[in-house]
Design a protein around this nucleic acid. Structure first.
Lengths: 213, 213
DNA sequence: GCATATTTGTCCGTATGTATA
DNA sequence: CTATACATACGGACAAATATG
């Protein structure tokens, strides 16, 4: 049987991000292995990868559970985003292929907003920022963003108010794209800094209202 | 038996970074497991973690080998460094505990330079930059830097001319620290940008002279 | 505090697929 | 092309740690 492992890791990753296993849920090796039709050993290897990506938490002799981001995690995620995203946008070229991805993400966000499909709105927002990072043409920075974006999605899952989290940023994405194309990268970077601060405040506010640490 | 796994991963990581397994070396599961006194399953779990960190390369059905950074890898590593390090330095406080680590790294580099202990000079240089990143107080950025620094050490191992790689930067570290303390973060950040460009050119020059792609 | 049950950590054996000599 | 070597994946087993009664 060929590389089940890689497929398994990706499948587990997607199911966790999609909220099938709520943050904090303990993932039993035996039951999950049986449920997924793989052996414990194979599942454990996938666990190690996901733990390294920050999606699950591994406590020795106590097993793994879906990561449940704390306030400190959210603060650090936004700190990292502020280091990477504005700089990538400032140095990005309007002719970069990622700009197409930015535009498509904006449009998907707008149509999903009309349909009140908040879940897709959130996905589109993430794709928008993923495209911004892609402007940097750096596999390592993209990987960093992929991991922290996944963690952030877990935080969103816990908040469970997708409209408040995602809807306000659709028009901001449109504005940011126009600023980038009409006024250039540095101006867009400045706008993005304010955007990220607002986004962080939105998430942190919802978090504290949930009395989570 | 307690968490052998974590210890095993760290031990393997250290041995790879120390050059015990040269870049490109194939790591056989059976022989290495026997050599380390662990089972293949345990070793495979450690492999997955190290592969995720970029230290080893995993090709399905062909096993793992120690990563052998290409020119493209080095370019990307320095790109990522330019995104993180100058910004961390620019925003860093002179009162941050990491400044002590910066100073200690500079001094270790200077004494090791006199002793012509190039290996320790390289370690001290890396510790210096690690302290710069620590100024940002971001676990995720520190993890990113830890991984790319390890990859960079593999590139250094292949070049095998530690004096040319590390010696020129001891005085630059001293200068950078003084600039940071006397003229502030932004001025030091600007100096660091030129530093990193020079460092990248040094590594890439040695790489192309080795005719490696 | 103790005894038990559950779960993880680790190892072995084995079958199969893949690449290479 | 066959043969060999090795990685992949599975299932079973037991010890150790943790959780539970």
């Amino acid at each position: 049987m060929p590389d089940v492992e890689d497929t398994l890791t990706n499948a587990l990753r997607r199911r966790i991000i999609d909220g099938e296993f709520a943050p904090g849920t303990r993932l039993s090796e035996i039951s999950l292995a049986e449920k997924l039709g793989v052996s414990r050993n194979t599942l454990r290897e996938a666990f190690r990868v996901l733990a390294e990506q920050g999606l699950i938490e591994h406590v020795p002799h106590r097993g793994v559970s879906v990561a449940s981001p704390t306030v400190a995690d959210v603060v650090d995620i936004y700190r990292a985003r502020r280091y990477v995203e504005p700089a990538a946008l400032a140095a990005g070229s309007p002719l970069h292929p990622a700009v197409t991805a930015m535009r498509e993400a904006v449009e998907l966000g707008e149509t999903s907003l009309e349909a009140r499909d908040w879940r897709t709105v959130g996905t589109a927002n993430m794709a928008f920022h993923d495209a911004i990072v892609a402007l940097a043409d750096s596999p390592r920075l993209e990987r960093l963003f992929r991991d922290i974006a996944a963690e952030l999605r877990l935080a969103f899952l816990e908040i469970d108010n997708p409209e408040a989290l995602h809807a306000p940023f659709v028009t901001r994405n449109r504005s940011l794209l126009e600023t980038f194309l009409e006024q250039g990268g540095p101006a867009a970077a400045e706008e993005l800094r304010g955007y990220l601060i607002l986004s962080e405040q939105t998430v942190l506010g919802a978090f504290t209202r949930l009395r989570r640490g």
